[in-house]
Structures are given as C-alpha cells and as structure tokens.
Design a protein around this nucleic acid. Structure first.
Lengths: 236, 236
DNA sequence: TCGATAAATTATACCGGTACAATTACAATA
DNA sequence: TATTGTAATTGTACCGGTATAATTTATCGA
C-alpha cells in the first residue's frame, strides 16, 4: 500500500472515530506532515484523494475541513465498487436468472470493443434490498479478460473477484442514465406495473489500461432509486 | 491563469483539433515537459486534471491515452456549470415564473445552513430544450452571499454572474436524485400526465470556502432526461 | 516460431525546497 | 465601535531531483 493511500485512510478513520462534523477543521498541513513523517507533497496527495472522494475540502489560507454529505439511504453513483461497497448497511441479495457464455449483442460488442463473434459471460440477475426488488441487471463480461465466472463468484462481489482472484485492476467507468416507463417484462421482474417509472443505467467498466471488460444494463425499481452524487467543479 | 490549467486546455484543444479518438496516444511526459517548458510535476498536474475530467487516462509504463466517451445528447451530471456550459449545442431557453426575495422553507434553510428568517432569492422557472420542456426548477439563493439578482441575470448564466459579476468562486456540489411519479401540478408544468415518470434532483452548491449558496430542486421531463456520468474509481 | 528473460520505456511515488495567494488575526487609526 | 491597513497563517503552484513499478520491446535460447 502506498504512503499517500494509507495516510488518506488514516485521516478518514480519524474523522470517523472523532465524529467530526461538516465544517470541522483538521490539523494544518505542517502538523500532518510531522504526524505522518512524510513530505508536504505526500500529505497533499492524500488530501487531494480525500477531496476527490468528497470527504474533505481545502481552503487556501484557511485550513482543511470535513465535508460531510451523504444523506442516509442514498447510493453513491461515484465509485466502481459495484454494490457491496456502498451498501454495507443494507441487506443486499440477488437472484441469478441466467449465467452462460454466449456471443454478445451488437450493442454489447460495440461497448466492449470486441468482435461480434467473441465470447462473453452473460449474467442476468435481480437484486434485492431489504427484501424489496432493487433492480434487474444484465451484464456482459469480455471473456478474454474475465476468463472464468460461476454462480458463487457472481453472488459474491464480482469486482472483488476481478481484483483479488484475477489480479486485474479496475480503472474507470462511464455511465449513461435516463428515465422511461417500464414495459411488461420489466414490471413483472420488479413487481411493479407497466408504465411505472423506470430508471435505466448503462455502465461500461474499464481496466486501468483502458480495456472495457463489463457492459451492464440496469433497470431500477424507482421506489428504491435514491442516488447520491457529488462534484468538485472544474472552474477553468 | 495557472500554468497547469493553461496546459490542460492546450492539450484538450490539441485532442480536439487533431480529432484524436478513444485509445489514441498522446506524446510522452518528457516530450510534453519540453514542449511546454515546465517541470514534470506541472505537466502531471495538468494531466491529472484532464483525467479527472474524463478526457484522458494514464497507464504507467505505457503512456497517456484519450478517453473519448460522451454519447451525443447526454448531459453530464458532473460539473457545476449549470446548464449553459454543457448544452452549448442545444437551444436552451427558460421561462421565469417567479423571482422574489423571501424567507426560505425549513428544508431550504437547512440545506443552505441559514436561519429560517434569513432572506433568500427564490427563483422558479421552466427550462426548455429545443422547444420542449426540459424541467421545472426551484432555486433558493442565500441572499447574504448572492446579494442581488434580477430577471436578466437569471435568464443568462447565473453561475457566470456569480463568478464574474460577484467575484465569488464556485467550489463543490452535492446532488441527490431519485425517481418518482409526477403529480398534477408538475405534469401540468411539463406538459405531461399525472403518474408519468419524474426524475427529481436536489442540488446544494457551495463556494470554495464551503458555504452553500444555492439549493435547487429540479423536476425533469423524463423524455428529455438523458444523463452522462463518469467515475475514476478509488481503488483502496 | 515460440516462449522465457532481459533491457528499455514510461508513468508514478516521494522528497525537499522557494515563492505566492488567499484568508484570518491583529493592530492602528479615525 | 467600526474600519482600514498590516502581519501571520495556511494551502497551492511550481521547480528539479531520485527511485520504483508497470508495461512494452528487444534478445536470446530451444
């Protein structure tokens, strides 16, 4: 583990343990430098990471402050961790409907940047949160990257498996979302009615080297669809 | 303008002008250092900024590559620029229904972190995109920060006015979104039907010093609600 | 020709420094 | 008391360096 990552975790833990509130001030840079016995640039990097994550904000000439946000019950849209990470407080389960190797749809092939006749793992599942339907999810995994999958792995955290089991590094993701009306089939899966609101999210997940490995299409139960989102603004 | 910001703009322009595609490689660090005649850390900072904005991604040992994403017609959810910035290609207009000084609702006061009897500017407007209703928007501006507003300013870019006119610096924002069904009034405003899908977004906008100055509640026309979102993953 | 191994390439981590800009605290002044 | 100017505080920009980890390319051996 890198120094600046460790430090950022330490600081986050410190905020947690001391129950610091929005606007509370952290020790100044110089203190932190001394405390962790590293150079200014390393501390700065830790703080930049925390800022990016929305944990703190820094004000020049003034100090470093906690930015406590997150209303309870919201899922953060920022983070590639899949669900397990964000929803530790909740009871998340899932029911795998299909899991097989097949050739991708044209759409999936395009988004995964593979040939139409290449192999993909296809996974269709329903996720539940505290017993309620959360979403219906269809995922296509590039089999030349994700060489093996089974029900056990899929039931646990796929992303963990990709990192730990396969030793791959998850990088960035692009998501596209819009709102529509449910059709019959979707309504059926979610236990809702045709015409009810539907939050639809497409996600393309990439390794750090830029290769897309997962293309997912998710339809959320609107009653469960509370998302959180933050931005730090690029003021150019 | 700071060096690393200028450079990041230059590089972005370079990508644009040379029509570089997803995966195309940029010059290596050393070349960029020489080209812009700055130190490694400055270039690195420019690249980090571009990475944060989703323009590029960097691969250690390999190079710097363009990450071209953005499907056409999607509005980026990340960025504090309000609308004008993201939707330059579109015809955005708005119809201001109300604009006055008043005391905030309890909810608004809470989110703006002000007393219930403090003054706020209240703005209610309908936005149109290419002649279609895009959203109904209610905003509360902390009057002790945004000391003056009028219809002309509101019709133009408020955020520009805040930066240029008032000399304030917009920092970060937190947004919360969920999906519901439209009620009668909302349906009426948007030209839709009661019970139709509703994408509802609450946003709290802060200055760089952490003060919230704008609390907004936006109800989107689901037919127009196509959003884009990206994440760079914090792999700790 | 293929696979393993070594070498070169390339971005990232980390150091420690100077200068500067924004904010805050304080003192002086009216 | 309020205001204005000044100094201290504090984070950010930028430099230039060494070492290292990931990747790609070249080299060698079978």
């Amino acid at each position: 583990m890198l120094k600046y990552q460790e430090i950022s975790i330490e600081i986050e833990k410190y905020i947690e343990e001391n129950a610091l509130q929005q606007g509370d001030k952290l020790p100044v840079l110089e203190t932190l430098m001394a405390q962790f016995a590293v150079s200014k640039s390393t501390i700065t990097k830790s703080l930049d990471l925390l800022e990016k994550k929305g944990i703190i904000f820094q004000v020049r000439g003034s100090g470093i402050f906690v930015r406590r946000h997150k209303r309870k019950g919201y899922i953060s849209l920022l983070s590639n961790q899949g669900f397990k990470k964000d929803l530790e407080d909740f009871q998340i389960t899932s029911n795998i409907i299909e899991l097989d190797v097949r050739t991708p749809t044209e759409e999936a092939a395009h988004n995964l940047n593979i040939e139409p006749n290449a192999d993909v793992y296809y996974v269709k599942r329903i996720r539940y949160i505290n017993g309620q339907t959360l979403c219906v999810e269809e995922s296509y995994y590039n089999k030349s990257i994700i060489s093996y999958l089974n029900k056990e792995i899929v039931s646990e955290s796929i992303f963990n498996y990709i990192r730990e089991g396969l030793g791959l590094k998850v990088g960035f993701s692009d998501s596209y979302l819009h709102v529509e009306k449910l059709n019959d089939e979707e309504a059926n899966y979610l236990g809702l009615n045709k015409g009810d609101p539907k939050l639809y999210v497409e996600g393309i997940f990439h390794l750090t080297n830029g290769q897309p490995f997962d293309f997912s299409k998710v339809t959320y139960n609107y009653q469960q669809s509370q998302f959180f989102l933050q931005s730090n603004g690029y003021l150019l």
